[in-house]
Design a binder for these strands. Structure first.
Lengths: 319, 319
DNA sequence: TCATCAATCGAGCAAATGATCGTACGGAAG
DNA sequence: CTTCCGTACGATCATTTGCTCGATTGATGA
């Protein structure tokens, strides 16, 4: 056992004494024969290494009720609703990420090989960041959207690399922009053998965790220059309210046919009919986009927050 | 939803924000619109109601190694070793109780009807106290030792009542002292229809969680006046080192035949051959008694602490 | 309607925790 | 063997949490 493993062992013991035994850091220090700040560091290490699993074993009724309503109305396999965070976009993504990590964790813990696909987005990334490490080299992870921005840099919200690092599986990335410059460029990309091979892996995946994009000036598609200002206006003019994997949707959840749609390089949404397609998205501002995705019937699972869930539920026809 | 349920809901939300979201109590107070001490009270309520489940997802190597050694040497289905507590008997029982509650919880969570039997003892009681509530009215819980002390009061360490309250199952208590005043009294008790009915339920149980008693002046049998001082000396003279369900054992784990043994009203240990019989006991002083029970082959599972485990392992023949 | 009692609240204080900074130690390289 | 760099430690300080006590509010009974 090397030094780091000894450290982890001691951190586990300190964590056990603190969280289970209810001892103070001073008490633990006395028993382990280290200083009080040393115990503090051991506990911090235990938290950082993801050893401490906290589960709140009591449903929050309002979140549960919202989730049940959305499951029933849209025929979802599940809908997890986390408490709303009112402190900024990062912490909202973190809450969603923790809940999503629990779902992803349950899928990847099995031994039979699994092919899992990921979209992009801040919440999808947060989910992978919140996921604990494990060793399942038999699994495969594949990107559903291109991981290259228009300037050639990697997509900042792509998480397949990190997921494969954590779980040890094979990784399949799309070296392409989500929206091509032209129809010719898109066709050239789709014709590439690498592209077709990755598309086949994606089609074979059992589950997909994806974000939901909004269509406004803060949309990633616009901010990362995949579409121009005039194209944004075109989408808004066609009443686009959101996007899934780059495909723009109107409020009924229909993919809008326009010049942008023809240049999207992602696998068409129709291919995901048999997948467990799970969206990870929340926030008041995202509610219209999430609602559209639900109405379009593209989703089998949803991980959202209270703010978005409430806003969607408020707009459902009453029965 | 009544006021207490609203309170529990709010406590769950505060707990989620604190333990999962990592927010401070001031931050939670701002979001929930209550005072900071109010949040502190909500978190205290959440802890008191057992909503917060903490699991340390990393083994402590020394505990694990001791457990594996004892499993292999004595052919146990499992051996859980918790870190030693050095702060007094109550906290040692608490550590053992938490680990045992996890095992009991896994058994009772199933839906198929289960019959579970319990011995008595401080650690058995601590296990039931640490167990979370659930609703399984189809289960049955039965006492393995009489729940009546010599003066007619209820056994202070009997936990079947509490267990049945928490899980909602049927309860079968033995209205008898663990050691009768005389052989005639014992025979009269065993002849009672109620007694025989409860004994049949106990025989039908799949698992039994029992304590291990010591034989010295601090033994419960002596302190609660089931045996006299001269009888204690008799047991010590016969080299009794421990007891299971009132049955005294020598260091080889054999039940000692003597005047006390003939008056014990519990089900004889031979009846438990096919049960998952799990002892919950720890502490340096209990090590000889636990070791005797192991050598006698009476146990299929053990939940102990590091101090006891190390002392037993140190006495095993080396190979 | 008023008085009393119980429950809950928040201010404030003590205890516990989280983090920073200066120092020391160990290992590696020259 | 010496020097330098990186890591870890403990003292100390700032922040957070746990708890107590006095005050307030609400409910119940006369």
């Amino acid at each position: 056992m090397d030094k780091f493993e000894l450290k982890l062992d001691q951190a586990a013991r300190a964590a056990w004494m603190s969280y289970v035994g209810g001892l103070t850091q001073d008490e633990i220090a006395a028993q382990l024969g280290v200083s009080r700040p040393g115990v503090q560091r051991l506990l911090a290490l235990a938290r950082q290494e993801g050893m401490i699993k906290v589960h709140i074993d009591h449903p929050i009724s309002t979140c549960m009720a919202l989730g049940r309503t959305l499951e029933e109305h849209f025929g979802l396999a599940f809908c997890d609703v986390v408490p709303a965070a009112s402190q900024g976009v990062e912490s909202a993504a973190y809450y969603l990420g923790v809940a999503a990590a629990e779902r992803i964790g349950r899928l990847v813990e099995r031994n039979a090989p699994l092919t899992l696909s990921l979209g992009s987005g801040r919440s999808v990334r947060a989910a992978v960041e919140a996921l604990d490490r494990t060793e399942r080299p038999q699994h495969r992870f594949v990107s559903l959207v291109g991981n290259v921005a228009r300037d050639g840099s990697a997509n900042r919200y792509d998480a397949v690399m990190l997921l494969a690092d954590k779980i040890g599986g094979q990784r399949f990335l799309l070296p392409a922009p989500v929206v091509a410059e032209s129809l010719a460029e898109k066709n050239a990309l789709l014709d590439q053998r690498l592209f077709r091979a990755i598309a086949e892996v994606a089609k074979a995946s059992e589950a997909a965790f994806i974000g939901v994009g909004r269509i406004d000036r803060r949309a990633t598609l616009f901010q990362d220059h995949f579409i121009s200002e005039s194209e944004l206006e075109e989408l808004l003019g066609l009443e686009a309210v959101g996007e899934l994997l780059g495909w723009p949707l109107n409020s009924r959840g229909e993919v809008i046919d326009c010049s942008i749609t023809r240049r999207v390089t992602s696998l068409p949404l129709e291919h995901f009919g048999k997948h467990l397609t799970v969206a990870i998205a929340g926030g008041n501002d995202k509610a219209p986009a999430i609602h559209a995705a639900l109405r379009g019937g593209w989703l089998k699972g949803l991980i959202t927050d209270e703010a978005a869930a409430r806003r969607i539920v408020d707009q459902l026809p009453t029965t």
